[in-house]
Design a protein around this nucleic acid. Sequence first.
DNA 1: CAATAAAACGAACGGTCGTGCTATAAATTG
DNA 2: CAATTTATAGCACGACCGTTCGTTTTATTG
Lengths: 203, 203
Amino acid sequence: MSRTANKGHTTREAILDTGIALAREVGLGALTIGELAERVGMSKSGLFAHFGAKEELQLAVLRAAQARFDENVSRQAFLAPRGLARLRELYKRWLGWAASNRQPGGCLMLAAASEFDDRPGPVRDYLARQQEVWLAGLSRTVGFAVEAGELPENTDTEQFAFELFGLILSTHHHVRLLQDERYFALAQAGLERLINAAPLRKD
Amino acid sequence: MSRTANKGHTTREAILDTGIALAREVGLGALTIGELAERVGMSKSGLFAHFGAKEELQLAVLRAAQARFDENVSRQAFLAPRGLARLRELYKRWLGWAASNRQPGGCLMLAAASEFDDRPGPVRDYLARQQEVWLAGLSRTVGFAVEAGELPENTDTEQFAFELFGLILSTHHHVRLLQDERYFALAQAGLERLINAAPLRKD
DNA sequence: CAATAAAACGAACGGTCGTGCTATAAATTG
DNA sequence: CAATTTATAGCACGACCGTTCGTTTTATTG
């Protein structure tokens, strides 16, 4: 017994890999079992047996995408020391993940959030939960820069995180729709303005 | 002959009204002729005859939504005098349009852009074109405030517009996904920071 | 009102959807 | 290697998809 890999587990991973790619192209809602099975090279029913329901497949794809995001963005950025260094590293990796058009489809979580924000159910719940966690993590990362004395003491970290998110979204939107890499420069300038004129708490 | 209204034109308008609402709920790509026909109260084939192809229906729905946006946001904001007054009015109306959850589905154009940014074709082309026009209009509106002396003379209007768009997107994203009206306050603070610490040209 | 044009319908088409079942093939275990 | 669990395939189902076509109803016009 090779511990990590039953046959089932192995093919399941392969399915999710291809599923992420396919969902990026057509959208998570339009992800179809037949098309996915064909790409993976197995039968519809064989693939279906792994998940038992379409919605379970969607959730599994989403969880797999989230795991890759955590690995490539969060975990890597956490290798940088607390403060502006980590914040900058996080922003750079996040931007690369979300708006890079090296691979088609952009960020699956952002696309899925936009697609499912009006469809109650487990998918939406999962996305909302992850979003809350991510926002809180962002605020904390900004907070470390405050603690390090690299941002004003009364910086509004939530406001900072909210605006940082907006910069990512604007870049994502414009790069993907208008296919113009020029927007990365605007994203960079936006971060610098956030740092140099950070939003302050009102009280 | 009542000039504006053949029977055909009238029902076409009704179809588009309902079509906008339905597309907001399920997404423009998942907009279905049968479901739409049922909601309008007519036969599938009868409805289909108005457009001749699914893609034409999608484009027609998109154009109708754009017309409503222009009417309720752009045109109304242009009643305010050039400068910060108009900019603030535009922002307020845009925010209300995009992120208000009084009616379900949020902004159709934003959702459609996210859905179609990877599907080449007329729908994507239309969305990209409208996006360029809108960004240019935003920059010009900011420029008027510069001309009025209400923003620094060397304000980077494109950067300003890009960041303004990010604030709208961040609000849209968070309000719709997390159902928390609190984010409107962050949107407002973001605009004030843009005005009080406007991005400047590098040269 | 009659003639004509426009609009809506109903039925059917080939496809694909998600999802059950039953049988077979492959991997794992003793 | 034999026994058994696990994974995959094949087939069928009802439902709905976009689209076509011929017919019927409704508006418009002279």
